[in-house]
Design a protein around this nucleic acid. Structure first.
Lengths: 225, 225
DNA sequence: TTGATTTAAGGTTAATTAAGGTTAAAGGAC
DNA sequence: GTCCTTTAACCTTAATTAACCTTAAATCAA
């Protein structure tokens, strides 16, 4: 996880950078925001940590510049103790947070992690993405299978099976592979179990006639849409 | 091991103090040297860490005062980057050291370390470290779970469970892991106990519909928001 | 070679069992 | 007493097992 850190107090910055690095964060420290846009372009940070009180350009101005080009890049502002909340209000959107000076390192790390996980779905397609299966949308985080207005929450087993079929879309998955993956072995009872779950999924997915879970007898399954 | 730390830059001081404390040092921070003698008398430090550049009374003056009354108390001076060695020469005796700003925490610790001992006490100075859980804010120190205007004070067990779920946000936690961690074993009664606390937490957290504690039957739980 | 028959694999639905949820009451610590 | 934790009773739902049905491949008779 990469953090762009803009702070003019060199003594503080050095300590914070060092501490963050000891916790496996990757930190680039800048003393001012002069070249922040080009730095973001080359460094590709996951989060920005910006001191509000800066000599050349103040932190909010920098924040605005970042927002315009990178609307989903989370920013944590570091503000003076006595600064009012009102000043920050405009920035308290989903992608921002602030922390008061003097701050606890623990608190800073928690806020960074929190903000990052909150927003990572926005920039990063991988983490919070939902999958499209024909007319359906499946969200692996919430286990929700959605079509039009209806939401079906899948059970653990259903979700596991759907993911295997999704991952191998258009290809053949061996029955044995599914059984071993989900139940640990391909014992007779589990085999019948799999049949049951295949039926369930076919049922859940029947709103879209183009989605098919094709049986390849003696071999496995193939899901297409 | 107790450290008396005199530093006027509050931001830097807080981080240094916290970092030292996280390594089992006990730190008393003063923003100036005004009452240093009485503080030493009551706090009984093993070492003093003194910034040279202070607004009211400069660090060397403080050092001299300490020396007169406590000739054997070691003092580490923190000096500005461009300050010459000559200024410090008079103080480079057996009982003193100095470190240049900006300094590495590791370097500081090495210099202090001659009296390093492990103590059990954890850092209890963390002021308002709090966690964000959806619309909620949770303060692990006060055990307050806050949403809008309402504050719910969690019990010990509730807090433990919430922390486990929080730490593993978005990931699956095994039921067994929770049971072993909170109750020491996964006997039947404890298992029912866990169910009770899951219900409680779900209730407390229901103001934010995006927060879910998903059951993965036969496996565990996954908290998302 | 081709259609009928066999057979094993898988499909469907329902019953059973096990896991967990909910609520309330009992027990304990302060 | 009061608050928290544990125990308990009963309820709900998911996972498994079971029974019976269907289908596709394999075998076989003409």
């Amino acid at each position: 996880m990469k953090i762009l850190y803009i702070e003019d107090e060199v003594s503080l910055a050095k300590i914070v950078k060092e501490s963050l690095e000891s916790r496996e964060f990757d930190v680039l420290h800048l003393e001012d925001g002069e070249f922040v846009i080009s730095e973001i372009a080359s460094y590709q940070p996951d989060i920005c940590l910006v001191d509000v009180m800066l000599p050349k350009k103040d932190g909010f101005t920098i924040g605005n510049e970042i927002r315009q080009l990178y609307p989903n890049l989370p920013i944590v502002f570091i503000t003076a103790r006595d600064q009012t909340k009102d000043v920050l209000k405009g920035f308290e959107s989903g992608g921002n947070d602030y922390i008061k000076k003097p701050f606890s390192l623990e608190e800073l790390i928690i806020r960074i992690k929190n903000l990052y996980t909150l927003t990572k779905g926005l920039n990063d397609q991988k983490e919070d993405a939902s999958y499209r299966i024909g007319l359906y949308t499946y969200n692996p985080k919430t286990l929700d299978l959605i079509v039009q207005d209806t939401v079906k929450k899948l059970s653990y087993r259903e979700a596991q099976l759907l993911m295997i079929l999704f991952e191998t879309k258009g290809e053949i998955v061996n029955r044995k592979y599914i059984l071993d993956t989900l139940w640990g072995d391909d014992h007779f009872f589990n085999s019948r179990n799999l049949d049951v779950y295949i039926t369930k999924l076919r049922n859940y997915l029947k709103s879209d006639p183009n989605i098919e879970i094709i049986t390849l007898k003696g071999v496995g399954y193939k899901m297409i849409w």
